[in-house]
Write a protein that binds this DNA or RNA. Structure first.
Lengths: 152, 152
DNA sequence: TGTGTATAGTACATATATAAACTAGATTTG
DNA sequence: CAAATCTAGTTTATATATGTACTATACACA
């Protein structure tokens, strides 16, 4: 008989709370990502488009980075990809020639609306395993975790 | 995928449950990462070392990928870095010449013990905002979320 | 037994993220 | 005003992750 290695699966039952939270986050990310594939978007792209949509005008790279909560070099790359998708366009800021502004194209706005619907549906489906009371309680726990950083 | 973007910076209060879970995951990841910097480790590296330590023998790449919950090409790269850190060593599997086994070095085992202590302390600190009853309940919610993936 | 197929790991392309170095332009200050 | 300094964005290097293609080996079966 040929010796086959059994795939030792992950063992969430052996995991503690910290690991479970990370794994839950990863699970949600993965499911939204899969749902978004349909409209040629990813989570990061959708969230960038969301801020650009909410802003209703051209945004500076630095401001977008602030909203997203990441560094500027990340946003440079993200905007590169969004630009080659045709979802946004860059322009020089006339008030500060160092600055670059980013704005949704019509196509980008349309795509964002599609992605938004999909994410809302997917999120609702994921959370459908909880009652509204449970959701409220889980939400309260998570807010405490996020708002009480041990040293921030 | 990292999805730092789930941050939704200025307005966690406007976030729904899905976003909160992703943000909580990111928070925990970031805090463990920061704590681990001390011993020249990262979350993914520590995670891999943990399985190698538990196995107590050389592990196959595929099995490690199964434990970690990622693809093999990711593990190839991770093992490359761990090998150049001197924490693990590869060998050909004598029973299957296609196979590669990975094993902790003495240095890797020592580093893992250091990292383990640090992570346990950091995790305990993060979770210290919850009572043990609350932890149990949060844990139960998260397990349901992880164990009940909506069909896909 | 030889050929077709499956599997293991790697290589390559790409996406996402961080950090540091660099460039161009703006601001401060002597 | 000119020199020093700061800031905006990009570039570059690296880490992490996914998916696909490729190579070598193992297995299956006619």
């Amino acid at each position: 008989m040929y010796y086959t290695h059994m795939n030792e699966m992950r063992r969430p039952e052996a995991m503690r709370l910290g690991g479970l939270i990370m794994m839950a986050g990863k699970t949600v990310v993965a499911q939204l990502h899969e749902a978004l594939d349909e409209v040629n978007l990813s989570g990061p792209k959708l969230f960038a488009l969301r801020y650009l949509d909410q802003a209703e005008k051209a945004m500076r790279i630095t401001d977008l980075a602030g909203c997203i909560g990441s560094g500027k070099s990340n946003v440079t790359q993200l905007v590169d990809r969004l630009e080659s998708d045709g979802f946004v366009q860059r322009a020089r800021d006339p008030d500060d020639r160092r600055g670059v502004t980013v704005e949704l194209t019509r196509r980008g706005r349309r795509h964002y609306q599609d992605g938004k619907k999909i994410v809302e549906q997917a999120e609702e489906e994921i959370m459908s395993i909880f009652t509204s009371v449970e959701r409220a309680q889980l939400e309260a726990y998570l807010r405490r975790l996020i708002d009480d950083p041990p040293e921030n």
